[in-house]
């Protein structure tokens, strides 16, 4: 088991290097350090000396991939790419264009992001699975069909609509919850309720359909027929057999998402003014702050890979046939 996890972690290293390479190339292909210096210094009269000084200060004075002046292995290591990658691998994200420590910022913003993302995820999981089980229990009936139609409708409406409609109805017209903002602790619940509910509702359409198809696939299996033949009630078949066997495909889709919850939701957070990582990312994109974007890309990839490893581990816990 531990050997397996170690192997997976080692396998993650080339992937993360690849991720770095992609962001690095996207950035430097079109944007030379000189351009960055000019954009950052901003003043109209920028002397070449000022640019050079800025580049040395930020560490951008090294060549991109190959340092011809250095010798031996240093030719490769003493370059911008390797230096920048090494910094990212040690989770040292450096400073944003506005000269703020990105790492510290990420730490303080993770909390609010999780405060929204975790409840949304949990409630959505429970609601979607229960609704899907209900549909499967009454499969083929009017209830099933009408719920399917509603599900298609829900997933055909843009998520932006739910947010805007929710804010207008619950905050502006009925004054049930504040329109946006955030407080940590229990006082913050009133700020969280609306984004969580909207997040759950917006995902119901596709979620319910997905779980329903998983359960329907199980229900046609031989073991379900056997279970019915030995006289189990439909409910027992559903919870004892279909749900348990459906767990495996559900795990594939669900576990991988859990670590990325830290990243927060871009749209939700920026609409509701929640100081999480999602709104941080959006602000960075709008301000064209590549340092933050780079850090978030790296963080997202790490979390995704952690999710993949967790998925494999959870397999061994739920399915005795799978051995690592």
């Amino acid at each position: 088991m531990f050997a397996y996890i170690l192997k997976r972690i080692l396998y993650a290293v080339p992937i993360l290097i690849g991720v770095n390479l992609i962001t690095f190339m996207l950035f430097f292909m079109v944007n030379s350090p000189d351009d960055m210096a000019r954009a950052q210094l901003g003043a109209k009269q920028v002397t070449p000396q000022m640019i050079e000084a800025w580049k040395v200060d930020k560490g951008y004075d090294k060549p991109l991939f190959l340092n011809e002046k250095a010798e031996g292995l240093q030719q490769i290591t003493d370059t911008l790419f390797v230096q920048e990658s090494l910094k990212l691998f040690s989770f040292d994200f450096g400073y944003s264009d506005a000269n703020r420590n990105i790492g510290a910022e990420i730490k303080t913003r993770m909390g609010p992001s999780l405060a929204i993302a975790l409840p949304t995820f949990m409630i959505a999981l429970i609601t979607n699975i229960s609704l899907a089980l209900l549909m499967v229990l009454f499969r083929g009936s009017v209830l099933d069909t009408s719920m399917m139609i509603v599900a298609v409708m829900i997933m055909s409406i843009s998520g932006l609509f739910y947010i805007i409609a929710g804010q207008v109805l619950f905050s502006k017209m009925w004054h049930w919850v504040p329109i946006s903002g955030y407080l940590s602790g229990w006082e913050g619940v009133k700020f969280i309720i609306l984004p969580v509910l909207i997040g759950v509702f917006a995902g119901i359409g596709s979620g319910v359909r997905w779980y329903r198809s998983i359960f329907l696939e199980q229900i046609n299996q031989d073991y379900v027929r056997t279970a019915r033949a030995k006289g189990l009630s439909e409910l027992k078949v559903l919870f004892g057999h279909v749900l348990r066997n459906g767990m495996l495909p559900i795990l594939t889709g669900v576990v991988v998402v859990i670590p990325t919850l830290f990243m927060g939701s871009l749209i939700m957070e920026s609409f509701f003014g929640i100081p999480g990582l999602g709104s941080y990312t959006i602000d960075a994109i709008n301000a064209q702050d590549f340092g933050i974007v780079k850090a978030m890309v790296f963080l997202g990839s790490v979390l995704y890979i952690v999710g993949l490893i967790l998925t494999d581990i959870s397999y061994t816990l739920f399915d005795p046939r799978v051995k690592l």
């Binding site: 992937i15 991720v19 992609i22 890309v297 997202g300 995704y304 890979i305």
Partner: peptide, 8 residues
């Protein structure tokens, strides 16, 4: 695919 879609 390990890079978050919107960020990429």
């Amino acid at each position: 695919s390990s890079i978050p879609g919107v960020l990429l």
